[in-house]
């Protein structure tokens, strides 16, 4: 006769985790649930009081989306792994849910290292699903993923927006490995998928899904290019995508589009016939930043598609991208005003 445990069997599986941000009326968001299992670790420091109310975009104010009901606290959760990285075969599955009128900042502590796999067919995985209710907002500005040589890694970030609403500012970036050790995209395989879905209930009460955005990066040996991955990367050692959507980030969207529009034309020349105007501070900042872009070998583009602003960037060194991103977000300012200085911790 086998011994029967008096306790309910554990339902948690390795690598699983969940975060639920709920709203305590009238306007206090609480972390109702933070669960995690080895090798995933979640750390939630004390929430910070909401900084001064972010500038309410006009159309959002009209809808009465916010105002006196602005959440009073900003919660932050650090996504960590034991050992600071992901070992071959690890599988992480994180579920996050944001209720209406809550905000969450997700961060990491240092780049997510992907450790060597003994066999290319052993792929480590990290999967994250985020459900955003109407009027909730997520900032996810992690450090870049750093896959070491001979690694195979696949991650996916799926954002489900209730009624296609909700605000999202998420960055996904990856580096060439340990450049100090001469690693230069010497990986077996790297995949990163970002998807944004709109969930809307149909007449039967089932939810209908519509794909709003899919950004899928696949780095592997296929493609018939006869070129090593490092050659395909054209001398860049970091690639990133920044996804911006929703009323909370309307100003940030506008800023990126505006700066892209203001980039000097490629192949244009200065014929010296333009009158040098007195520059204001913002214009001076722009010129300085463009100089830094040039010296860092940073190229970027911004596109306004389907309600998103999608920013793509790449640079010669990781720090070039990090500095650029911080520079842009800081100069615009609404992110720091709405979510606090901590939200851009990983860009420092």
């Amino acid at each position: 006769m086998s011994f029967k445990s008096p306790f309910a069997p554990s339902t948690s599986k390795p690598g699983q985790g969940s975060i639920v941000v709920a709203l305590l009326p009238p306007n206090t968001p609480v972390l109702r649930n933070v669960e995690y299992q080895y090798p995933l670790k979640l750390v939630a420091p004390n929430p910070l009081p909401s900084p001064v109310s972010p500038p309410v975009p006009e159309h959002a104010a009209e809808q009465g989306a916010r105002g006196p009901t602005t959440p009073s606290l900003i919660h932050t959760v650090f996504l960590l792994t034991y050992g600071g990285g992901i070992v071959a075969g690890d599988s992480i599955d994180l579920n996050i849910s944001l209720e209406s009128r809550t905000r969450l900042v997700l961060l990491t502590q240092g780049s997510t290292k992907i450790f060597k796999t003994p066999n290319p067919s052993i792929v480590s995985r990290q999967h994250m699903t985020v459900k955003l209710a109407v009027d909730s907002a997520l900032v996810y500005l992690p450090d870049p993923v750093q896959p070491f040589a001979q690694t195979a890694f696949s991650q996916s970030q799926i954002y489900n927006l209730e009624d296609g609403q909700g605000s999202l500012c998420a960055c996904d970036w990856v580096t060439s490995g340990r450049s100090a050790r001469g690693e230069n995209w010497d990986i077996y395989e790297y995949r990163s998928r970002n998807e944004v879905w709109a969930l809307s209930p149909d007449f039967d009460g089932n939810s209908k899904k519509k794909l709003l955005l899919r950004d899928n990066l696949i780095l592997d040996k296929t493609g018939q290019t006869n070129m090593a991955l490092s050659e395909r990367m054209d001398g860049h050692s970091v690639f990133g995508t920044l996804i911006i959507r929703g009323p909370m980030f309307a100003d940030l969207q506008k800023f990126f589009l505006g700066e892209f529009e203001a980039l000097p034309r490629i192949g244009g020349r200065n014929w010296g016939d333009q009158v040098q105007m007195e520059l204001n501070r913002g214009e001076q900042w722009r010129i300085d930043r463009q100089q830094r872009e040039k010296s860092d070998g940073l190229v970027w583009s911004a596109a306004n598609v389907r309600g998103f602003v999608l920013v793509k960037f790449a640079s010669r060194e990781v720090e070039g991208s990090r500095n650029w991103l911080r520079d842009m977000v800081r100069e615009e300012g609404s992110l720091v005003r709405g979510f606090g200085e901590r939200s851009i911790l990983c860009l420092k």
């Binding site: 995949r191 998928r193 899919r214 950004d215 899928n216 990066l217 696949i218 780095l219 592997d220 296929t222 493609g223 018939q224 290019t225 395909r232 990367m233 054209d234 860049h236 690639f239 892209f260 980039l263 000097p264 034309r265 490629i266 192949g267 244009g268 020349r269 190229v299 970027w300 583009s301 911004a302 596109a303 793509k312 960037f313 790449a314």
Partner: peptide
Amino acid sequence: EGWDKRVEDAGQSVPVMDLWVGRHEKLY
């Protein structure tokens, strides 16, 4: 290679291509 690839798994294999194409607008 692509015969059995599902549409969900379609994706960019040359990330810098998006930058080149996207920055076409910035050509003088």
